[in-house]
Amino acid sequence: MNILRTPRWSPYVVGAGIGVLSWITFAFMGKALGTSTTMVRLVGLIESIVAPGHVAANPYLARRVIDQPAVDWQAMLVLGLLLGALLSARLGGSYKVEKVPNLWQWRFGPSKPLRYGAAFLGGALVLLGARMADGCTSGHGISGGLQLSVSSWIFFAAFFTTGIVTAMLLFGKEGRNHV
């Protein structure tokens, strides 16, 4: 039980665990780890409550929402992600409410609206990009990467490059002393 109380595991152990988890989902569930498609189903579901005609007229949403289960394998995976992290954080004693991270506060001050607004904008770009590329860090980065899929390695190289450039523009080298 001691290992369940250790707050941090080696990234190699965690990485290997995710690799083995992928074997299991491929072999026994016929699925690949992924999360961002669930965002499309959720948006389609919300929009279909407010404006069903609009969803029906948009093939991108309609294809994933109409006559499709809204709560499927991946939707439950996303719910499990939240619960699994909660369980791990509680068992390891690393649960911590974070409103404005230290690095952000050092550079942009303690304003919560500013941080929440930036997080919202960042999230919007993340999914805009993920949907354009047809996958995110799990669907492309891990599942696609391990299948040696060409699209996924292009995605991986692209997001890592602009992530580094953006972080350096936002925080500069000095930011390294605040993470």
Binding site: M39, L125, T137, S152, A158, T162
Partner: peptide
């Protein structure tokens, strides 16, 4: 893939999470 990945990286640096790690 390239353009989407590029936009994704900008957003991920601003947010500090990707979809899976953000939910977690």
């Amino acid at each position: 893939n390239l353009l989407g990945g590029a936009i994704f990286g900008v957003g991920m640096a601003l947010l500090g999470y990707c979809p899976g790690t953000g939910v977690a």
